[in-house]
Design a protein around this nucleic acid. Structure first.
Lengths: 198, 198
DNA sequence: TCTTGAATTGAACGGGCATTCAGATAAGTT
DNA sequence: AACTTATCTGAATGCCCGTTCAATTCAAGA
């Protein structure tokens, strides 16, 4: 037997990417074999190579799409001029976006070292753009005298690490709701740069 | 040829653990082969099994020793009663300890999913004890009216994620000194729970 | 209905994997 | 110097890896 009934690239392609995303997130890129991904989709390993050049490209595409989508969604946020409102919005956005895509986020932070040098550089530059957005908010807030903090770059990285950490423990249906978590993290971020809350 | 000149378990044992620590941190547990570790030490792969039951035990021992040492060092800190001083001390300790052992820390946070179920539970329980220490400081500070925050458990995890994030970017000899970084992170932690700085 | 090309199989390739173990050699002890 | 024991080799075992490709079958347009 060869071509399967009901088969089409519009179905198999996304199914491969979904399976790879889930398996990479759960077990790690290096531990997942092409055969495992294929089995999840219900095809033979060879069929994967109609949809990706190789395993590395599969990982890179997943990461690049995630980062691109993230930057797009960030761009689409409504503008506001008050620094505290901007930081609050950023924190809520980051938490919400990350809680919606736990697997993609996990991969984007854990599998950087599985990328080839070129691919790593490409992803790092996208990530850098995201960080720069937050850093811009912090610097503007400091210039306007609304924020106080020690070092803009370090504070940026510390805040992003803090916010991203939510994916390590948050589970749907737990003690705290999504909105609770967004508020609590946003408030912590604001206080961390000396904005009084309540 | 068989036994090598100058060979002894007191030398080879630690060298194997050092090599494994460095290689696991750099390339990931799943990507590192026993042959690579052996080559780093200058010995054949079979010799590793005089020092570890298998590859999984090698990882587990590294992680367990790291967590045990961390808890020991935490215990050894001088006691103080002021909540703000306690949090400041904890933040400085965490940053300093983690900057001293980047490889061990990296493995302890990245390779949890490479552990067997039993080993994972053991490491998680050690990590839980560390988190509980910080949570105790936060709860006591809130009870004394010195700290304000939304939720103790969540704040604990957020602070630890923020502090641990330092290992992602700090490099010896960079723009900020070790002491700078400790001060900046400690101040952010304090502000995040509403303690006024300066 | 026939033809074309998209989709997939299944086998094969060369290689690396963790782990085991009999045999060999050096270190240490008497 | 002789003996014991700790240490290590090197080959072997059985398995899984990523990737390729000729052959095959289905879908869809003419």
């Amino acid at each position: 037997m060869a071509r399967k009934i009901g088969s089409s690239s519009e179905i198999t392609g996304p199914r491969i990417r979904d399976a790879a995303l889930r398996l990479f997130a759960r077990h790690g890129f290096a531990s997942v074999s092409m055969r495992q991904i294929a089995a999840e989709v219900g095809v033979q390993a060879g069929a994967l190579y109609l949809y990706t050049a190789d395993k590395q490209a599969l990982l890179f595409d997943l990461m690049q799409d995630h980062m691109t989508d993230l930057l797009c969604a960030l761009q689409a946020l409504p503008q506001c001029s008050d620094p505290a409102a901007q930081l609050d919005q950023f924190a809520r956005f980051h938490i919400g976006y990350h809680l919606d895509r736990p697997d993609a986020v996990f991969i984007a932070y854990m599998e950087l070292r599985s990328l080839s040098a070129d691919n790593f550089a490409a992803i790092e530059s996208l990530r850098r753009r995201y960080e720069d957005h937050l850093q811009g908010i912090l610097i503007e807030g400091a210039a306007k005298g609304r924020f106080i903090f020690g070092d803009a770059k370090m504070t940026t990285l510390a805040l992003i690490a803090m916010l991203t950490g939510v994916t390590n423990w948050y589970r749907e249906g737990g003690r705290l709701s999504r909105a609770d978590v967004q508020t609590l993290y946003a408030d912590m971020a604001l206080r961390a740069v000396s904005v009084a809350i309540e």
